[in-house]
Structures are given as C-alpha cells and as structure tokens.
Design a protein around this nucleic acid. Sequence first.
DNA 1: TCTATATTTCGATGATACTGGAAATATAGA
DNA 2: TCTATATTTCCAGTATCATCGAAATATAGA
Lengths: 108, 108
Amino acid sequence: MKVQATIEALSALANEHRLAIYRLLVQAGPEGRAAGAIADNLGMPASSLSFHLAHLNRAGLISQRRESRSLIYAADYAQMNALVGFLTENCCGGASCAPVADKRKKAS
Amino acid sequence: MKVQATIEALSALANEHRLAIYRLLVQAGPEGRAAGAIADNLGMPASSLSFHLAHLNRAGLISQRRESRSLIYAADYAQMNALVGFLTENCCGGASCAPVADKRKKAS
DNA sequence: TCTATATTTCGATGATACTGGAAATATAGA
DNA sequence: TCTATATTTCCAGTATCATCGAAATATAGA
C-alpha cells in the first residue's frame, strides 16, 4: 500500500460514524448490508449516511453492489489487511510493535 | 484501546505531514529527534511543525522530553501497537485479515 | 405509465483543520 | 543581565469536512 492510499484509508476510518459503519459491515460479513439497513441500525439520515459510505468506498475500504432497488455495501478485508500491513511495516519500531511478533514478511 | 482513542490516533496519522513525522520518529528510534531536526529534515516551518507534533502528542503516538534548549520527540510504539491491535480485533473479518494469518493470540 | 421504494446528489450552512509569520516563552552561556 | 538559540503560542486567513432537507435518479410492480 502506498502512502497516499494509506492516508485515504486512515482518514476514512478517522470518524466516529464511518468507523461505526465499517465495524457494522465487518460484523455483517461478505453478504454486506443495504444502505437502508445501515441507516436504521445506526439511526442516521440517509443523506448523511450516503456521504460517509462514499468516503469509505473512495478509500477502497468497502465495496458496493446493487441488488434490485437496494445498494449493498460490504467491508473489503483486503484493504484493511493492507492498511494494517503498512502500519506494521512502516510505523512500528521492530519487535517492540507487531502484535504477533513476526516481521519477516515485507509486502509493498 | 477504546473507540475514541482509536479515532484520535487514526486522525492524527491521517495527514501527509504527520504520517511523515511519525515515520521519521520511528526510524529515529527511542532516542527521538529534536523539533528543529525534524523541521530541517522535512522542510517545514517551525510553527506548522509544532502544530502537527502537538496533534500526534495529544493522540499519544509520540512523547516529548526536554533536553536543554531542545524538545525531543520520540515515537510511542505501544500506542501504535494498540492501534494495530484494535484494527485487527475489531475491523477484520476473521482469518481473511491478519497479515500473518495467526489470530490465536490477542495482544492488547 | 403511474406509483412506491431505495438511495444518491445538490446546495447551503456551520464547524473544524491547516498554514505560516510574528510575538511570547524557555534555556543556556558570556 | 544581555544575547542567542530552540520552540511554542497566538492570530488571521484559507481550505476542507460534516450535516441534512429537498430534489433527482434508479428500480420494481400494478
């Protein structure tokens, strides 16, 4: 993951509502959830939710697919994986960081 | 790590300059670097740098200590560790995430 | 084609963040 | 105490972000 993509992912998650949305989608699994269901669950106006979903989508953290009248959003685990990988590889001080104590691998 | 602290850490890192500062401090190691040295290295005005350092410090990602006339900043690896831990535990979809494919251990 | 549902886009408003020069503060040495 | 260095705080200007009602778009069924 490049620096610019990392910053976009970080800033997408750095918001109370968007972090809640993302976590909800992680719990929902690969099937994802319709925008309306998310709005109901989190109790937020449709237009506000749409704004935040677009932000997460732009950052590549969630995907969107249409299913009849509904737009279904789902978490993109690969992107989160890449983000965690970037932080572990570039922002940790060696063995002192890295939760699982394994810093052999160096993905770009 | 709690949600609010997570959001603060994420938003502290979600900026080109602050991410560069943080990475520089990670490279610098536990000794850290004086504000002036960071300013020279990244070529930014002292007052702007100070603003960003304060932001990172507030989020707990860096520490500050005085050494004579200089203020030395150093990366706080524990906080980054906690952030990565939060993301791994709360924002990943099980085995599909986690860079090293090991989710048995749960570090705090 | 008409109506209902699901969601986004638009637009205006308010809030928050970033920038950088100038002034203030802290420390040290002569 | 005077001067120099290191850094922060203050301030004003600019830019970006968040909010949410209203209008627009997309889909489906009668």
